[in-house]
C-alpha cells in the first residue's frame, strides 16, 4: 500500500460543474470520508450525481472545485499521467456491463491491469490465476468472455479489480445485468471481499443491494441528502 492514512478516499467540499450552455452542478459541495476496510453504498435517483461521484472517486475525472484524495494521494494536484497511474494501482473497477476485453481470455483479462504497471508476464499470469481461483473460476481461465455466463464474467471483473491490490474497489451497479440469484452470489462475493479487509464503494439504486453495505450515502441533486448506517433504514 502506498498510503499511510486511515482513509481510502476523502472528499472535501467537492463541486463538479458541466458547462453545456447553462452551467449544471452535477456535484454541489460534497464532503465524504471513506475509511479503509469500509463498505459504502452510494444511492440516489438518476441525475443525483452518482456517476459523477464515481468518476471522481475512481480518478477518471477531476473536480471543478474542492479536494479529493485517493489512497492518501491528492488527486487534484496530479497530472493526467499520474492520475492514470494512481487509478491503475489504487482503484479496482467493477462495472454493470462487466467490461471485459472481448479477445482476451479470463486469465489475460485479470492480468491486463498489471501489464500497464510493467509487471512481468509470468508474474502477472500467476497472480491472475490465484485470483481467479479465489473467485471460483480456477477452471475457466482460458475461456473468452463470450464463453462465460454473466455471473462468471462479473467474477472475472472482480478478480481483475483486485489484481493490483487497490485502496478501494469501486463497483457500479455490479448486479444490474444479472438475475437475482446470480446477483446474490456476486453480492456475497463483495461481502467476502469486505470481510477480507478490502474497501468497497458500491453505486446502486436497489435498496436491497445497498442494505448489505455498512452505510449508505443518499445523493440528491448533487448533494449528500443523508448518510445512514446499515440495517437501520432511517437516520
Amino acid at each position: 500500500m502506498t498510503s499511510s492514512g486511515e482513509r481510502a478516499v476523502s472528499l472535501r467540499d467537492v463541486r463538479k460543474t458541466y458547462r453545456v450552455g447553462e452551467p449544471v452542478h452535477a456535484l454541489d459541495g460534497v464532503s465524504l470520508e471513506i475509511p479503509r476496510g469500509s463498505y459504502t453504498a452510494i444511492v440516489g435517483p438518476s441525475g443525483s450525481g452518482k456517476s459523477t461521484l464515481m468518476h471522481l472517486v475512481g480518478c477518471l475525472d477531476t473536480p471543478t472545485e474542492g479536494e479529493i484524495s485517493v489512497g492518501g494521494r491528492e488527486v487534484t494536484a496530479l497530472s493526467e499521467r499520474e492520475r492514470t497511474s494512481l487509478r491503475g494501482s489504487e482503484v479496482g473497477f467493477v462495472f454493470q456491463t462487466f467490461n471485459l476485453m472481448p479477445r482476451l481470455s479470463a486469465l489475460e483479462n485479470v492480468a491486463l491491469p498489471q501489464l500497464f504497471q510493467g509487471v512481468s508476464t509470468a508474474e502477472r499470469l500467476e497472480r491472475a490465476r490465484t485470483l481467479l481461483e479465489e473467485v471460483g473460476l480456477g477452471d475457466r481461465t482460458d475461456h473468452l468472455p463470450n464463453e462465460l455466463s454473466g455471473g462468471q464474467r462479473q467474477r472475472v471483473a472482480v478478480a481483475r479489480a483486485l489484481v493490483n491490490d487497490p485502496a478501494l474497489v469501486l463497483a457500479d451497479e455490479p448486479t444490474g445485468n444479472l438475475d437475482t440469484e446470480t446477483g446474490e452470489r456476486i453480492l456475497a462475493l463483495f461481502d467476502d471481499l469486505h470481510a477480507a479487509g478490502n474497501t468497497v464503494v458500491m453505486v446502486t439504486h436497489e435498496p436491497h443491494v445497498a442494505a448489505r453495505a455498512e452505510r449508505t450515502v443518499h445523493l440528491l441533486d448533487g448533494r449528500i441528502e443523508r448518510i445512514e448506517p446499515a440495517g437501520e433504514g432511517r437516520e
Partner: peptide, 15 residues
Amino acid sequence: REIGIMKAVGAQNRD
C-alpha cells in the same frame, strides 16, 4: 469501449 476499459485499469495514453 476497449480503450475505455484499458484506461480505467491504468493504461497510459502512450500505451
